[in-house]
Simulated scan of single mutants.
Amino acid sequence: MAFVKVAQRGEIKENGGKELNINGTRVALFYANGKYYAIEALCRHQDGSLAPGKIDGEVVECPLHSWHYNIRTGELLDYLEGVKLTTYKVDVRGNDIYIDV
C-alpha cells in the first residue's frame, strides 16, 4: 500500500463527495464534519456511485435507492447485516490530500 495524491483542499465542498479512479480502484472521497473520508465508491445494491450521495453526519445515502453507509467505517446501516465497504486511510499534507490504496 502507498499513499497517492488525489485532490487538494477546497476541491470538495462541506458534505460533498467526489469519485476517484486510483489505479483501477473506484474510491469515493468525502468531506464532512471538517474531515476527509475515503471508502469504496460503489453501493453493493446496484453498483451506483456513492460520491454524489447526500451526507448527514457520518452517513452517506446512495442516490439510486437510498441505501445508507457510514463513511468512517464503510458499514451498511440498513437492509443487510454484515455488509461493509472498504475504507481507506486519508492523509492531509498542507493543501494536498492523499489516500492509502
Rank of each mutant, 00 (worst) to 15 (best):
R44T: 14
Y36S: 00
S66N: 14
C43M: 03
S66H: 14
P63I: 03
I39T: 01
G57I: 09
G34V: 03
P52G: 09
A38Y: 12
R44S: 12
Y36R: 11
Q46G: 13
C43R: 05
W67R: 03
G48H: 11
S66L: 13
C43G: 10
C62Y: 02
D56P: 02
P52A: 10
E61K: 09
P52F: 05
W67L: 13
D47N: 14
L42T: 03
G53R: 06
L50F: 04
K35Q: 15
A38W: 09
V60H: 02
G57Q: 04
E58S: 13
E61V: 03
G34R: 08
V59R: 08
P63M: 01
H45S: 00
I55Y: 03
L42K: 08
C62P: 09
P52T: 10
Y36A: 03
G57N: 07
D47I: 08
G48K: 01
H65G: 10
Y36C: 09
K54G: 06
G34A: 05
G34I: 12
S66R: 12
L50V: 05
L64A: 04
Q46V: 14
I39W: 05
I55R: 00
L42F: 13
K35T: 02
E61S: 13
G53S: 06
G34D: 09
A51D: 10
P52I: 11
G48S: 15
K54S: 02
G53Q: 07
H45W: 12
R44E: 10
E61M: 13
K54H: 14
A51L: 08
E58M: 11
K35V: 04
H45L: 05
L50N: 08
G48V: 06
D47Y: 11
L64Q: 02
C62V: 00
Q46M: 15
E40C: 07
Y37R: 01
E58L: 15
A38F: 01
A38E: 02
V59C: 01
I39Q: 01
A41K: 04
L42R: 12
A41E: 04
C43P: 02
V59I: 15
L42V: 02
L64T: 00
Q46S: 12
K35D: 15
G53L: 05
P52K: 09
C43F: 01
G48L: 01
E40T: 07
Y37S: 11
G34N: 10
E40V: 07
P63N: 07
I39D: 10
K35R: 14
P52N: 08
G48T: 13
W67Y: 14
C62I: 03
R44I: 00
A41P: 08
V59H: 07
S49A: 09
A51M: 08
L50P: 08
D56H: 12
G34S: 09
R44V: 12
I55G: 02
